[in-house]
Computed example of a mutant assay.
Amino acid sequence: MEGEFAARDGAKLYTKTWKPESGYISAILIFLHGFSDHINAYYDFFPTLSSSSFGIAVYGFDQRGWGRSVRKPSERGLTGPSTLVISDIHDFVLHIASLPETLGKPLFLMGHSMGGGEALCYVLSTSPEFQNRPPIKGLLLEAPYVELDPSEQPSSLVVSAGKLAAMVLPHTQMKQKLHATYMSHSPKVRQDWVDDPLCHDTGTLEGLKGLLQRSADLSALSHGRKVHGLSTRLPCPVWMAHGTSDRVVSPTAAERLFKVLEAPNGDKVYHSYPDGYHKLHAEPDGVGEQFIKDVASWILAHVAGSPEAAQVGT
């Protein structure tokens, strides 16, 4: 089901919902997509989660500057600064948590790549602005962007120059192309990434500055350094997944951050997928199917009293 969501400044953002046909919802999953991606580019992931096998309702939105939330070329990559990116996420979480069909249902948050880094910055934030965040039952992260793969990492000189330029010309657009090679082992998925006009590879100087700063902050946390406004203490259990052959973002950096994250009662899981690439949900040869089942199993195992939890895998 498609719709629109109004952010606090009135911006209209495209939304998509996948609900179980039976009408019974076992859990709510809010999903944050990656860089130059959009919520309709996740293949069978969301339809499978919302199938009768799992009953997980999925709510996603094309973030500001991306996907169908872009209505003219000048809006491509126009995400605004990090404060706006994270407040959009907070507003969407509050919006979904207030819907009649979600009331009383366990709420989970998941992000892929850039969306994974955003989800981490959101739940680890110590800002008073987010203290009215609804209870999150669990955080799931697919190949979260903590650091780029070393081959993709811009030099410190380029980063510094970009930050200075962003102060003067924040809305200037520039291409920041991600190579399709390590998106998936599937040739079709790689070609889809290249051919999709909504995967426009366009950022603004302001948006890219914010993206790089969020990554730098998470990287600093992973090395044991303190970062103003962020904690390593999570409000909920966490499940993190990464393909060992991902060359878009660094699995090593993500696992290093995972090790310093503090989850309630130590409830945290890091799941490696041998030889997996960046889009684990779209990997061929049964890997994508197993990834989706692993996501659903973890969610349902954290839904108290859920009869579905006992049935997963049977």
Results as ranks from 00 to 15, higher is better:
residue 174 M to S: 11
residue 55 G to C: 11
residue 22 S to Y: 00
residue 45 F to A: 15
residue 275 D to H: 01
residue 64 R to C: 11
residue 42 Y to D: 10
residue 136 I to G: 08
residue 165 A to N: 02
residue 158 V to D: 08
residue 243 G to H: 02
residue 175 K to I: 14
residue 107 L to Q: 09
residue 278 H to V: 06
residue 113 S to N: 03
residue 100 P to S: 11
residue 98 S to D: 09
residue 14 Y to H: 10
residue 281 H to C: 10
residue 247 R to Q: 13
residue 94 L to C: 13
residue 146 V to Q: 03
residue 127 S to N: 11
residue 168 V to T: 09
residue 162 G to F: 03
residue 297 S to Q: 11
residue 177 K to E: 10
residue 187 P to D: 05
residue 63 Q to L: 08
residue 299 I to Q: 02
residue 113 S to C: 08
residue 235 P to M: 14
residue 12 K to E: 13
residue 226 K to R: 12
residue 57 A to L: 06
residue 196 D to M: 11
residue 236 C to W: 00
residue 80 G to E: 06
residue 79 T to F: 03
residue 213 Q to K: 12
residue 39 I to H: 06
residue 213 Q to A: 15
residue 236 C to L: 05
residue 240 M to D: 00
residue 53 S to W: 00
residue 240 M to H: 00
residue 116 G to N: 02
residue 33 H to S: 13
residue 117 G to M: 05
residue 13 L to D: 01
residue 55 G to T: 06
residue 124 L to T: 11
residue 133 R to P: 01
residue 277 Y to W: 09
residue 93 V to H: 05
residue 296 A to W: 04
residue 314 T to N: 14
residue 124 L to H: 11
residue 291 F to V: 13
residue 248 V to Q: 04
residue 105 K to G: 07
residue 156 S to R: 14
residue 181 T to V: 14
residue 60 G to A: 15
residue 257 L to D: 11
residue 45 F to L: 15
residue 250 S to K: 06
residue 305 G to C: 03
residue 78 L to A: 15
residue 249 V to I: 04
residue 235 P to L: 09
residue 187 P to H: 07
residue 257 L to F: 01
residue 147 E to W: 00
residue 31 F to M: 09
residue 206 E to N: 11
residue 71 R to M: 04
residue 119 A to P: 05
residue 133 R to D: 14
residue 217 D to N: 15
residue 150 P to G: 07
residue 195 D to L: 07
residue 50 S to M: 07
residue 289 E to S: 13
